[in-house]
Design a protein around this nucleic acid. Structure first.
Lengths: 223, 223
DNA sequence: ATAATTTTTTAGACTTATCTAAAAAAATGA
DNA sequence: TCATTTTTTTAGATAAGTCTAAAAAATTAT
């Protein structure tokens, strides 16, 4: 008896990916509404899809209780994340796109199915560990090398750090960081947290810059 | 007033591509049945889609008369062909796939939308003129450099040629050619057309090989 | 603890692309 | 030419994914 590899649609993959990302920041189970917001769709549509994914045993779902990924669902989601980040790396390193231009493109490329293609791309790129935004790239067994990163907003006066990632991937934010010279690998030192509005003043390359609390929360460093 | 770029679905793109390829070998307008055969679908489905594409002015369609591409439809089709062939080139030259492995993969990649990505890929690959099967790659204005190729079956005894392309892209055929050493760039000389079955005997690298008429028809050479 | 609010689900409808079966038109052939 | 065959189109159904509106459950607040 021949067994076919279960194929998941483009849409199903996007749901799994969203649930995966929401799980990371939530710890708890993921709500219908949060998925709807992430995918820019309606809660009713989400409910329909959750039933479908539960039937396929890709999520654990009980009505009104939110969802978690099953092991299989998690594996599929991580594979999509792997493809997304590898393609982003390719686009920046080989095709010279800027880091704020690649997210949208990778949203399409991540759905290309062939596992062989992904593994060869990985090899061609020399098995990169992090994507252009500092996010870790899962290896072909799904393992993720994660390092301890903290937001600049958690630093104390005088603390030093190296920028290793961002929490916010919108082009407008990334372009702003680029302009401020706050890109991956840059060494920074926190000079002062302003008491008035909790904005931060820091040094990058001998220059002093000021950042809102909100911006500081979205830049991740190693200390 | 803002005008959006007309987006065509994955399916619509495949229809346009099929009509394009069928037009090349047919000269005439393309029949509903031939499209159904090419896309492995039913004539009734094709009729539905033809109406839709005609509404969008991508094809010229009158009931029972077959179809031709409009200028716009042709442009879209050529762009898909461009993407397909560039990705094939990438897969073979950069990711070390074999020429019989890339067609299926490119069928997916050809639908990635970004024009910027395609142009950068083109540049990264150094503006290749032909794909791994010898098919010409349209440039970003849609221009195709075509050379005069003739099938080996049209050669006369003693004629020499260089293999520049194939008419048949199935893995089984390409693997056969690989095994016979009949790959792109190889110099061949036709020794004899066998009277009995019109099979051909030819020389490749000092070796003598025999090919069926059918195989000979599907290998293209410059003389 | 119960009323008000928010979240989630259900019910029913719409769109896209597909199908089968039957009807209509075109092509073929005696 | 007129009957037969082939091709194409129409009609009506189905599946996937979405939507709105309304109902049900859960949460929050008094």
């Amino acid at each position: 008896m021949i067994r076919f590899v279960e194929m998941n649609s483009y849409t199903e993959e996007n749901y799994l990916k969203s649930i995966y990302h929401l799980s990371l920041s939530n710890e708890e189970s993921v709500s219908t509404n949060s998925i709807a917001a992430a995918l820019n769709t309606k809660a009713a549509s989400v409910t329909d899809m959750l039933k479908k994914l539960a039937d396929k045993k890709l999520i654990n779902y009980t009505k009104y209780q939110g969802v978690t990924l099953t092991e299989e669902g998690n594996g599929i989601a991580i594979n999509i994340v792997r493809k997304h980040r590898l393609w982003e790396y390719f686009l920046v390193e080989k095709l010279n796109f800027k880091w704020d231009e690649v997210h949208e493109l990778a949203e399409e490329l991540e759905h290309i199915t062939s596992a062989e293609l992904v593994d060869r791309l990985d090899k061609f790129l020399n098995f990169p560990k992090y994507d252009p935004h500092g996010d870790p790239i899962p290896d072909n067994t799904g393992r993720i090398k994660k390092h301890e990163l903290i937001p600049i907003s958690a630093l104390k006066d005088g603390d030093k750090g190296i920028i290793m990632g961002v929490r916010e991937h919108t082009p407008v934010f990334l372009q702003y960081l680029e302009k401020m010279n706050l890109t991956i690998g840059k060494h920074i030192q926190l000079i002062e947290v302003v008491a008035f509005d909790a904005s931060v003043i820091l040094k990058v390359n001998k220059e002093t810059v000021s950042l809102s609390r909100d911006a500081a929360k979205n830049i991740l460093v190693t200390v």
